[in-house]
Design a protein around this nucleic acid. Structure first.
Length: 274
DNA sequence: CTCAGTACCTGGTTGC
DNA sequence: TGCAACCAGGTACTGA
């Protein structure tokens, strides 16, 4: 489901609901979600008694800061967090429940079971996978033209695959890459090392603009995304090419077409993007 | 090292 | 209507 704007919206809405709550007990109904420590029982034991002090985000990962530990969570395709009264029935796809000492639960729901959770000693999370390998977020100073152009020069992959590579820039996914490349007027199959510096700058600034505007609008709801207060996003109304195949390009009227790039469904205006 | 292909899962949609 | 094939906001692992 979520790319950076959706994760950021979940972070903000969820923080209001769980800040300063203390975990009394954890239940795990699908152990494969838990990646570190490997044993879910150990995971449960570690988190007992911890208080959620803050939630940060890096790329598409959320980082729950607690007294002694950091919980790193990735929602992958369909993960959701919500806070419920402990008396409410457990839905079918709830896999991890953090029971607070005030009678409420933080529940992790994930139809496809792709999401991940890692627990680290506080401060260690950035030194190890999965956070260690992430590149900068799009709006960080480190995502400069020099940095980005250099990365593009060093690979012969297509530009779409490079933008999806979280080690280059963290947070872009299939929707926002298609939108950014449309805005930058660059074809997704262009080989990265053939982009001019001007094209690289167009792609870079388009990516930053799209992500910032999508955050402002609470993300995009295409099929299932909702934030932690149960609200859908609004940015899907601004999408120009993603999911718009067989409609007219808003710039030139040419029909938007869908193709596969790097195994992912990809939407372009064949006239505007070359 | 880089890269394409595949695996991980469930459910909605499409096409015969 | 039934059912198989394909598709989905993602990433880790494999082997060439």
């Amino acid at each position: 489901m979520p790319e950076l704007p959706e994760v950021e919206t979940v972070r903000q809405t969820l923080l209001q609901l769980v800040r300063n709550k203390t975990i009394e007990r954890v239940s795990v109904h699908w152990g494969n979600i838990i990646k570190r420590p490997q044993d879910p029982n150990e995971f449960k034991r570690l988190l007992e008694g911890q208080t959620i002090l803050d939630i940060e985000r890096k790329g598409k990962f959320m980082i729950f800061n607690m007294n002694d530990l950091s919980l790193v969570s990735h929602l992958r395709m369909e993960g959701k967090f919500g806070v419920f009264d402990a008396s409410e029935e457990k839905p079918k796809h709830t896999h991890v429940i953090f029971h607070f000492d005030d009678g409420t639960d933080l529940r992790y729901d994930d139809v496809r079971k792709f999401g991940t959770m890692h627990v680290f000693e506080k401060g260690e999370e950035l030194k190890e996978k999965p956070l260690k390998q992430l590149g900068p977020d799009p709006f960080e100073d480190a995502f400069s033209l020099e940095y980005f152009h250099e990365k593009l020069q060093r690979t012969s992959r297509n530009i779409k695959s490079v933008l999806l590579d979280q080690a280059v820039v963290a947070g872009l996914g299939n929707i926002y890459v298609d939108e950014a490349l449309f805005k930058a007027r660059v074809h997704p199959e262009r080989l990265a090392n053939t982009l001019t510096k001007d094209e690289a700058e167009r792609v870079r600034t388009a990516s930053v603009d799209i992500i910032n505007e999508a955050i402002r609008q609470g993300g995009s709801t295409i099929r299932s995304y909702i934030n932690s207060q149960g609200q859908i996003g609004m940015f899907q109304q601004q999408l120009k090419v993603y999911g718009k195949e067989n409609t007219g390009c808003p710039q030139c009227g040419t029909e938007i077409t869908k193709l596969k790039v790097g195994g992912r469904g990809t939407h372009i205006c064949p006239q505007c993007q070359s």
